[in-house]
Write a protein that binds this DNA or RNA. Sequence first.
RNA 1: UGGGGCGUCGCCAAGUGGUAAGGCAGUGGAUUUUGAUUCCACCAUGCGGAGGUUCGAAUCCUCCCGCCCCAGCCA
Length: 554
Amino acid sequence: MMAEAGRDFIRDIVQADLDAKKHSVIVTRFPPEPNGYLHIGHAKSIGLNFGIAQEFGGRCNLRFDDTNPTKEEQEFIDSIQADVKWLGYDWGKNLFFASDYFEKLYEWAEGLIRAGLAYVDDQSQEEIRQARGSLTEPGKNSPFRDRSVEENLDLFRRMKAGEFPNGARVLRAKIDMASGNINLRDPVLYRILHAHHPRTGDKWSIYPSYDYAHGQSDAIEGVTHSICTLEFEDHRPLYDWLLDKLPVPSKPHQYEFARLNLTYTLLSKRVLTELVRGGHVAGWDDPRMPTIAGLRRRGVPPAAVREFIKRIGVAKANSVVDVGMLEFCIREVLNQAAQRRMAVLRPLKVVIENYPEGQVEEIEAVNHPEDPAAGTRRVTFGRELYIERDDFMENPSKKFFRLSPGNEVRLRYAYFITCREVVKNAEGEIVELRCTYDPATRGGNAPDGRKVKATMHWLSAAHAKRAEIRLYNPLFTNANPDAANFTADLNPRSLEILTDARVEPDVAAPNPAEAMQFERQGYFVRDKDSTAERPVFNRTIGLRDTFAKEVGKA
RNA sequence: UGGGGCGUCGCCAAGUGGUAAGGCAGUGGAUUUUGAUUCCACCAUGCGGAGGUUCGAAUCCUCCCGCCCCAGCCA
């Protein structure tokens, strides 16, 4: 049932390299910058990198790309590790930081200067930008491009010593200001940043750029296949140039794949950060967020995320995956794993008129219809019950075969009941149903073989526990939300809170099973906001609902 | 209009010259004490377009069209 380990162009390359004996062991790495929480897009990269390491008997390093202290925080370093672990991946002892290599990177930079391949540029940021040219025009050489090695070395050392303010100078690679590839127009290797780094503190006042740090870090770690997203394709010539000029211990190769996009979802770090900062969601782990923390709190099992990652594949074409694909994977995993319980989200009282007042009985219910090993439990039946408001229609449409006046239905595991009377309040709202039951149908089958078209869930009014249930809908109303103006596409009904729901008593206990299916409703998990007197449940995902679809058509 | 990529079913995605995998969605049906699950069937004479090469082309060639990325001292 679970898909086989996928095959894709990157795995094909890895296999070919192995066949050609280019490497004895495959080394990959997942290199997040600790400037935010991980989201499902990162899960694709994690699944690819750790997956390849597993499948080909290699290893995958977790390396933090912490080269910009102005954006990075310990909180993110911690959350990222927790999220990768939760997804089910293990980097073992291979936890690294680009900042571990600052000393070596600096040494190599001096080497570049000595070789006449790098220079200190005194131009302002604006001047550098102007001189870079445009997409169609070549750039101009910096007036400082031909400084002597001695002067460059002196200046670079003083940059390191903290003698100059932020932005005063940069170290640039001397490549080609006329290159059609703008990344090769003397890219910045080091910038002055008087900033506190979460790991190196105030030791450094210059920091390497991504382009300078990344490939060299890969080389130091012996990474064989450095896998990143498409936007770095243009950086590969620079990646290779540096590896070629520097005395690195190994020669990694960079490969690029298309990042994940999902319908009704935005995955840019900028948008996610604004969603949190702007109070549009309750935090990085808000169950509506596409973050790993959000999915976890929502009740999505890690196996479902892994399954999803396998199913969507890896390619170079930009694409937008239907979020329905993720939902399918969640249901697939949960259907097998989740124990069944009954919960009434929007209660409607039912009084069984011919059931003896004060009488109560215990009825056996199975915990999982396809897994006898999950066992059974007892639910209490009595004269006063709650059923789902949606399960009753006073004037039923032709396709509605749940409860309606005069109609007989089955209460799951219990009895057949027939609706005899609808009780309304002064406003005309239905407040109670008077029904009768057939004692001969105990357990849910009629001895005379008579059939019923609907089976409904229910709860004893006296025994059910009150609970808060949170229903989640897509954060955006637009299948392809506008990242530049995302607030316009925000779904005002992304969160619906039901405060008067009822659940079986045991699910309200402090330590219920991880995920549960509330029968005929969907999959739910207990939320961390729960208290002893008020348990809270998140709806992870609803069940497939072809009836709702039918109603929608009409 | 410089450079780098990408275009195969509504959505993902295999395919690498021998006559279009698979999954999701959808549709029809069977089973069902969850309108769930499960099961079965259907769902691209067609591979962005036009030419060409070939016995044979999604795969090779030419031209064209469309989309994405790059002008941070972000990653």
